[in-house]
Computed example of a mutant assay.
Amino acid sequence: MRIHHLNCGTDCPLGGALFDGRSLGPLGRIVCHCLLIETDAHGLVLVDTGYGLRDVAHPHHYPHPRITPAWRAMLNIRLDERETARRQIEALGYRADDVRHIIATHLDFDHAGGLEDFPHATVHVMQREYDDATGPRADFVARHRWRPAQIDEVQRWRGYGARGEPWFGFDAVRDLDGLPPEILLLPLPGHTWGHAGVAVRVGDGRWLLHAGDAYFYRGEMRSAQRRCTPGLRAYQRLMEVDRVARLANQQRLRTLSIERRDAVTITCTHDPVELERCQAGDPL
């Protein structure tokens, strides 16, 4: 399987290095790292979609019909059609219909905005995430993170329970419907109750783990001492549903990133340095 690392959305929050750890100016740069997986017999598989065509169709509209003003202002979202998953896939010479499966780490607005751009794809997600995203959204964060307009036209859902066979000490949902056995879902609750990572076997006994929003900053992995910028630390706390579960899963991932670095490469959604290194084929 060949994996393409795509940036399907850019946020530029005020604070610069207080968010991304490297910007010299007043604005930071946060990405939406998605995976495009080419399989031999199962078509194209997307892991998350970032912002979609319908999101970027209203770049100057206030209020935005699909992204709430509070989140748009907080993140200073840059809506660019060239960054949508569909346009990047077309630039690679494929059609939207070639995407047969989408695996969602979760259904936050910056991960699920492009689902409707691939109407023939089956969307695989943890059942708890689907239930929470489509059910009553009582509190402030829930109303802003899950946007019905982004998902209400999706026809092909496939939900999964949280238990499965072990994978490096984590529960793994295997045998995803219609997908090869080299792709697994790993329940990682805390950011949302139905949040999950996606593990992909890349050959020679190695795995790539897209950990979604289980962590946000490169310094939270691959070192015994956790480091995170103030901006991203605060944003993670704002968005969490359970701090104990989130930090416990993050610690388990950090241990995995150190002790099994020979077998597993871990990346998250929003760190631009991790994305750049993955795109360049550099080790994390």
Rank of each mutant, 00 (worst) to 15 (best):
T229W: 07
A199F: 01
V141S: 01
V125I: 11
P181I: 06
A172F: 04
R2W: 05
G161W: 15
Q236R: 10
D131N: 03
R218H: 12
R227E: 14
G114Q: 10
W167H: 05
H191E: 13
P272M: 06
R260N: 05
V125D: 03
L115I: 02
G164W: 00
C228P: 11
A248L: 13
W193V: 08
C12T: 15
G25C: 12
A17V: 10
A224V: 14
D131L: 00
T122W: 07
T267K: 12
R252M: 12
Y217F: 15
S223M: 11
A138T: 13
P187V: 03
E182I: 01
W146C: 09
R2T: 13
C278N: 02
Q251R: 15
A121S: 08
G52D: 12
A199H: 10
V241S: 01
A121C: 13
G113N: 08
R54T: 08
W167F: 14
L184F: 03
D11I: 00
R29H: 14
M239T: 12
D80G: 00
F170K: 05
R206M: 04
H33C: 02
A263W: 05
P63M: 09
P65G: 11
L27I: 08
T267N: 13
M221V: 09
I30L: 10
V202E: 02
A214D: 13
A142I: 05
R227Q: 13
L275R: 10
M74T: 04
R233K: 15
D213G: 02
D20M: 01
P69N: 11
P63A: 07
P59G: 03
G190D: 01
H124T: 02
L179E: 09
R158A: 01
L238C: 11
F216E: 07
T269W: 09
D55C: 15
H144C: 04
W157V: 06
T68S: 14
P189D: 11
R78L: 05
H4V: 00
R66E: 13
D213F: 08
L44S: 03
G135Q: 03
P63N: 12
L208N: 06
E90I: 08
W157I: 07
F19H: 08
W207T: 00
R22C: 14
F168L: 09
L44P: 00
A196I: 00
D108P: 04
T265E: 09
L284Y: 07
P59K: 01
D48F: 15
H124P: 01
D40S: 15
S223G: 10
G93D: 08
L14R: 04
Y160V: 10
C8G: 04
E274N: 04
R78Y: 06
L115P: 02
Q150W: 10
V123H: 09
H60D: 14
L18P: 09
R143G: 09
D108A: 04
C8N: 04
R243V: 11
P230W: 00
L188S: 04
D177W: 14
R82I: 03
G135Y: 02
V47T: 01
H120P: 10
T10H: 11
P272F: 09
T49Q: 00
D175E: 14
L27N: 02
A104S: 14
T122F: 01
H64G: 06
I151T: 03
H120A: 12
R237D: 11
A70T: 10
E274F: 10
